[in-house]
């Protein structure tokens, strides 16, 4: 297939030297771009030629050393509770990353050695941090994680009550003084208590329904 460059002087006669220079510049620019593009495509392809395409996975037994069914069950449970650190949203059991293969092998040999689940977890947490556990432990720096949603819920309820009490005019259910309502349609300290109690009752009814 032959294709002439669109901008080349051969296909497009140039009237003045100025536009000729511009055309030359355009060609140079296009050529630099093409070279850059080629490099982008060629470099990643060339990289594996320099080295292996990825980490080397040592040959050896994986998931074959464990014979006892109880140990096998432990292995499966732990592999599903531990995180693959390379592909962060997968468990060790799910992942095919080479580090996950190594970690599974580590897990297997520790089980064969008779280490307990807690010992194995402690070993990995000491090296990779709590992040390796899919279920975050309850400790001082995870309180926000564990109790944050409940705290937000509590704050939400408080705000809801606060706003509701304010919006409702005092004595709406006849408890307040009529005169107050016509002057300023706002809750008074005296009227507020009664309204809140009624509201509380209504809210608890609403909540019970669900």
């Amino acid at each position: 297939m032959t294709r002439l460059p669109i901008n080349s002087p051969a296909t497009r006669p140039v009237a003045s030297t100025r536009s000729f220079a511009a055309a030359l510049q355009a060609i140079a620019g296009a050529r630099a771009f093409a070279v850059a593009l080629l490099l982008c495509i060629a470099l990643p392809a060339a990289a594996p030629a320099l080295a292996q395409s990825g980490p080397y996975v040592a040959p050896g037994t994986t998931e074959t050393l464990i014979k006892d069914p109880a140990d096998k069950a432990r292995y499966d449970k732990l592999a599903h509770e531990l995180r693959c650190l390379v592909c962060q949203n997968q468990t060790l059991a799910d992942s095919d990353a080479s580090l996950a293969i190594d970690l599974r092998r580590q897990l297997e040999s520790m089980i064969v050695d008779g280490r307990s689940d807690d010992e194995i977890k402690a070993y990995l947490v000491a090296r990779y941090g709590d992040f390796v556990l899919y279920r975050p432990p309850m400790q001082s720096n995870t309180w926000l994680l564990w109790f944050g949603p409940f705290a937000l819920l509590a704050i939400g309820i408080v705000i809801w009550f606060g706003l509701h009490r304010r919006r409702k005019p005092a004595g709406a259910d006849g408890a307040g003084v009529a005169g107050v309502r016509t002057v300023t349609p706002r809750s008074t300290p005296e009227g507020g208590g009664a309204t809140t109690a009624a509201d509380l009752e209504r809210v608890s009814k609403l909540l019970d329904r669900d």
């Binding site: 040592a58 650190l85 390379v86 580090l99 190594d102 970690l103 580590q106 090296r127």
Partner: peptide, 11 residues
Amino acid sequence: DGRAGIDWGVY
């Protein structure tokens, strides 16, 4: 086999 790496918490 990457065992020392695991021991050092390498990922």
